[in-house]
Amino acid sequence: MTGSGSAPRLFRDIDGPALCPQGSVVCIGAFDGLHLGHQALIRAAAEAAKNRGLPLAVLSFEPLPREFFARGEKPPRLVLPRGKVEGLVGLGADVIGLLRFNAAMTAMAPEMFIQRVLIQRLAAREVWVGRDFRFGHKRAGDPELLREVGASAGFSTHGIEDVMLEGERVSSSCIRQALVDGELDMAARLLGRPYAIAGRVVRGAQLGRQLGYPTANLRFGGKRPALSGIYATRVHGVGDAPWPSVSSLGTRPTVNGREPLLEAHLFDFEGDLYGRRIEVEFVAKLREELKFDDLETMVEQIHRDADDARRVLGAAAVASLQQSSS
């Protein structure tokens, strides 16, 4: 670790000046969601960096490889790029590479990736990856190749045992499935925290305000969220405590919407949140997104959703108090 307290350095390109001329410890992965398994791997790398007195460099990709190769509808994302960067900073990254995943990278031999990124840009002394990590043209690179090349290039390759929960390996795909199934408690256990989506509030069509339910809106920049429907939520970044709310996440079929939009209605809140960065924590799924015949029918359902969300959040608050006092 640098220990300087300076802001981590972010880079996007494979080529460029040396970022860690004195050497670094590098951790590589897609890290979608930054779940318990990701956290364990990055913390192990961070500890190694601290012991060596070197900066921790974390490499990921944007778009994610699975997004780049997808045909048709994009696969769902657990965390947006900025949220990932913020999470990596919290885990101790000194240098963060969100490498542009494009046709040139898919055509690159794995040995070339090692030479240009790990050796030239980062002067890697240790490389930490998951056991199923693959990279380079036709996914020909793997941990064994890293060990072979590193033996002569001056870096060692390391990993950790799989992180297990209830007999299952913790993985991003398990979390995505839990979210699809509405199992938010399971997703939270796999993540080590409640599932949440962060972003900057943007202006919408103001329809919610006209209907008596003003919302704080978050867009996804072409990414596909990992869940949809109507939820009891808490909004962080507005007051001293998380603000109770009801949220809709989907394409708004009743008003012929197309792109995914997260709309959070904060109960009994007055004020303008436009431009504010907030985080919406998902507590419980209330129902699927529906298409209504008219706005009047939709508003009637919104009333019921708001009542349901208040009830769920009240029960959750009571349960939390009982847990903390026991």
Results as ranks from 00 to 15, higher is better:
S228I: 00
G159V: 05
G199E: 07
V95D: 00
S173E: 12
G159L: 08
R139K: 11
D132W: 13
R82L: 08
L190Y: 04
D272V: 02
E263N: 11
L262S: 02
Q120P: 00
D15E: 08
G29V: 07
K50Q: 12
P214Y: 01
E73F: 02
D32I: 05
P65W: 10
L249W: 00
A309C: 00
P65N: 10
G37T: 04
S24V: 08
G130C: 08
A124T: 11
E144I: 13
V299F: 05
E288G: 02
P21V: 04
G271W: 03
R258I: 14
G37P: 05
Q39W: 04
R100E: 15
A317H: 03
N102H: 15
L286R: 06
P143K: 15
F101L: 15
A153I: 06
P244S: 01
L190F: 13
T233W: 01
L99Q: 06
G221Y: 09
E289I: 04
C20Q: 03
D293A: 12
G257I: 08
G90N: 11
Q322F: 01
E183S: 10
Q115M: 05
G53M: 14
D307R: 01
S60H: 07
A151M: 11
V85M: 10
L190R: 02
G271K: 06
D185R: 09
E279L: 00
A7K: 12
W243G: 00
K223I: 02
G87K: 03
R189V: 13
D32G: 10
V255L: 15
S324Q: 13
G87R: 04
V235Y: 02
L313W: 01
S245L: 03
R131A: 13
S6L: 12
S171A: 14
D308H: 05
R139Y: 15
P55S: 15
D13N: 08
G239F: 02
L261G: 00
E67T: 12
V163H: 03
G150H: 04
L118H: 07
E259F: 10
F68N: 06
A7C: 12
H158M: 06
A103Y: 02
E47W: 07
T2H: 09
G29P: 07
A30H: 04
Q177D: 12
V170G: 10
L290W: 03
G5E: 15
S228H: 05
I28F: 08
G257C: 06
R12E: 15
M186S: 11
E183L: 09
E111D: 07
P8T: 07
L313H: 00
H303Q: 10
P214L: 02
R131Y: 10
Y231T: 01
D293T: 07
E300G: 07
L190A: 01
R258T: 14
S24Q: 15
G5L: 13
Y231H: 05
S228R: 07
L184W: 07
L80K: 06
Q323F: 14
E168K: 13
L273V: 06
V26E: 04
I278F: 00
R258E: 09
R43C: 09
D181S: 13
R189Q: 12
F11C: 15
A196V: 06
W243R: 07
Q120M: 06
M1I: 11
R200H: 03
L78P: 07
N256G: 14
R252N: 13
Y231L: 04
R219H: 08
M186Q: 11
